[in-house]
Computed example of a mutant assay.
Amino acid sequence: MRKLDEAQWRERLTPEQYHILREAGTERAFTGRYWNNHETGEYLCAACGAELFDSDTKYDSGSGWPSFTAPVDRAAVDALVDRSHGMVRTEVRCARCDSHLGHVFPDGPGADGLRFCINSASLRFEPR
């Protein structure tokens, strides 16, 4: 994917998507379109279309955001230290386009014990 400047991102994304994906914003809990989605399919980056998560790893964490135990491939996402809001968290970004997706926490039910807490606005769902 060719690198886009911020004006091009603004044209491509909705205002909510731009705020979340490019400015590391967050949607309110229980408001996103995918937090309660139970269909089978793949979750892609809303900015660039990279495959990020599969419904097989999605679970209801009770947090109000789509939660996954793992990405489809560790190389699909990057993890960065986030010291905003007076705390230290691990931010998750799309490895292809560097868009903010959400955060990962060490309290998940999977084998690795991770919970990828992702904004619905950062995702596009493709049913199988």
Rank of each mutant, 00 (worst) to 15 (best):
Y34G: 02
D73G: 04
L101E: 00
F68M: 07
A29N: 07
N37P: 00
E126C: 03
E6Y: 07
S67T: 12
S120A: 10
T90L: 06
D82I: 14
Q17R: 01
F53E: 04
E16W: 04
L80D: 11
V77Q: 07
G110A: 06
R10K: 14
S63G: 09
T26V: 11
Y34M: 04
R28V: 11
E6I: 15
W35V: 08
P71N: 08
V92R: 02
Y59K: 08
G86T: 14
R12A: 05
D5Y: 06
N36R: 10
E42M: 11
A121N: 04
N119P: 01
R96S: 15
W35D: 10
A70S: 06
G41R: 04
R22C: 01
F125H: 12
S63V: 12
T31C: 06
A50L: 13
F53T: 10
H103Y: 13
C97H: 10
F53K: 04
E23M: 03
V77N: 11
R12V: 03
S120Y: 10
A121T: 09
G41H: 04
K58L: 10
F116V: 13
L101Q: 02
P66G: 12
V81N: 03
E11C: 00
P106H: 10
V104H: 04
S120H: 11
H103M: 10
P127R: 08
P127G: 01
A95M: 09
F116S: 12
L80M: 12
G25P: 05
A46R: 04
D60N: 14
L101T: 01
T26K: 08
P71M: 05
L123W: 03
D54Y: 07
N37I: 00
D82R: 12
L4H: 12
A46T: 12
W35N: 09
A70P: 00
C48F: 10
D78S: 10
G25M: 13
E91G: 01
T26L: 07
F105T: 12
G108L: 03
F53W: 05
G32P: 02
